[in-house]
Design a binder for these strands. Sequence first.
RNA 1: GCCGGAGUGGCUCAAUGGUAGAGCAAUUCACUCGUAACGAAUAGGUUGGGUGUUCGAUUCACCUCUCCGGCACCA
Length: 578
Amino acid sequence: MMIDIKEHAELSVLNHSCAHMMAQAVKRLYPNALFWVGPVVSEGFYYDIDLGDEVIKDDDLPKIEKEMKKIAKDGKRITRKEISKEEALEMFKDDLYKIDLISGLEDGTITCYQQGEFIDLCRGPHVETVKELKNFKLLKHSGAYWKGDSDNKVLQRIYGVCFPTAEELEEHLNLLEEAKKRDHKKLGRELDIFTMSEYAPGMPFFLPNGMIIRNQLENFWYEEHTKENYQFIKTPIMMSRELWEVSGHWDNYQENMYTTKVDDRDFAIKPMNCPGALLAYKAGLHSYKDLPLRVGELGQVHRHEASGALNGLFRVRTFTQDDAHIFMRPQQIEEEVMSLIQFIDRVYAIFGLTYRIELSTRPEKKYIGDLEIWEKSEAALAAACEHAGKTYKVNPGDGAFYGPKLDFHIKDSLGREWQCGTIQLDMNLPERFDLTYVESDGTKVRPVMLHRVIFGSIERFIGILIEHYAGHFPTWLAPQQVMVVPVHHEKHVEYAEKINALISANGYRSKLDARNEKLGYRIREAQLAKIPYQLVIGDGEQEQGTVTIRRAQSKESQTVTVEEFLAILSEEVKEKRL
RNA sequence: GCCGGAGUGGCUCAAUGGUAGAGCAAUUCACUCGUAACGAAUAGGUUGGGUGUUCGAUUCACCUCUCCGGCACCA
């Protein structure tokens, strides 16, 4: 597993010092460079730099590395200096970035660190001398908006990583290389799971293998939700402008919506399922006795995401949300959310996925609803996490304008986190659509509503699974579960066909490879296709009514009766064994 | 959308200012085979698209599309 640099105190200091050394090297190569911040992050360090009109190109990284090696070899000590805020402002008076930083600091002493000719504002701590910074690598670079604001100037950001020894660095770089082999875009192509076309940017095409995985996930989803007392609906993919005006999307989300005009009337393809779900709710009268009402929909949405945001199956322009909207009485929130957290936890465990929860609270400026309700809702979400025994990180101000939410994040092979599950309270739509239910006293009351997904998007979830399993899907999900391989393509083909037919008749996905090729060749292909079970059939098996099993990723083989093999398959699939 | 990088047969990649070459895959033939590649032959590309420079562009320039790594975005 990839190391999280930020989580290791020593590596953190080392990487931070290395960021300074990189800045020093950049300053030598670009005398006009001005520096913004250079923090340590989980992948190492970066520094944001203003190079005036110059930009960093790929070829520049080796040059900077070379200069850094020189500095490290020179071996200057890193010394700490304390100065007053006034002195700091004077010292950096020609540097608008430093002035900006210093102005934001409290009055009192400010620390600087110096090595050779280079001095930088910094809280520290740092390593003793730059001699310790010999084993580093600059990994990538990009433009990055100053202060993360797209209205600001683009600074040059350079990422790197540093380790105490050359061996650790090399091992880390190897891990990065290995991670690339698990990339779902690469495996998705190799295993014929999905494809993309420039005629539909950001919109994946699922190939037959991908459809098997998808259908398995969807069937599983329906089964589990049926157990949890969900009902299911399917709403139209396109609805008229008036609906989106009621929901607020026409005013707030229009640039992300695909719209069309038919018979002089505006329509929009749904970017979310909720408005449709609310119309379905309004199709009838609801009693407090029916609550919580759990209504699920595997709904395909379209969003015109920024071109630069697109990324394989992780970020697409059309995807299927495993959505559900839950309508309930206010006092039911905490219990409902708690059981949802456990539901999500149970589902992720089946796939062997680990995750992290974030609680996003009320945005500072733009939000709707009472402050009191917000606070109660946030408390309910937090309490639900605690009662479910889950830790969470608070993201202050990161909630949607209509309510607080819990997000479930899962890492990809490169350690990047993607939001999958989410539980969001909504104080907006029930109001806009005037939802009601009949309370015990006969009055009409506004229900509390929450949106929730578990996979998040089936597309993204499949992307995550491809990387998580490195293409080796567990048997219950594997596009093809069994490959029957007769040793001789004529002598053993009849028995092999019988075996293949029997396995298929029992509901498993089996194929016969009776091509006129060497056994080793066909085994190799089955291994590369990551088929969980290869059954070799030769004279011995034919005579005794057995099959010889070879598992994917294994060199071992084992001979069992056909019945025994079916029992193995049955148990493995039924239990969704990993 | 922004910064950088990349687009060559299904896939992985090579090459050159003078109309592209390999490996894998495919097809055919031969081999008749016990656990990760037997061999041979054949076919397959208007080098993402457009414009310009040039006697000549896949190669140079510009525009555009798509993809990748980041940034921003992520109701």
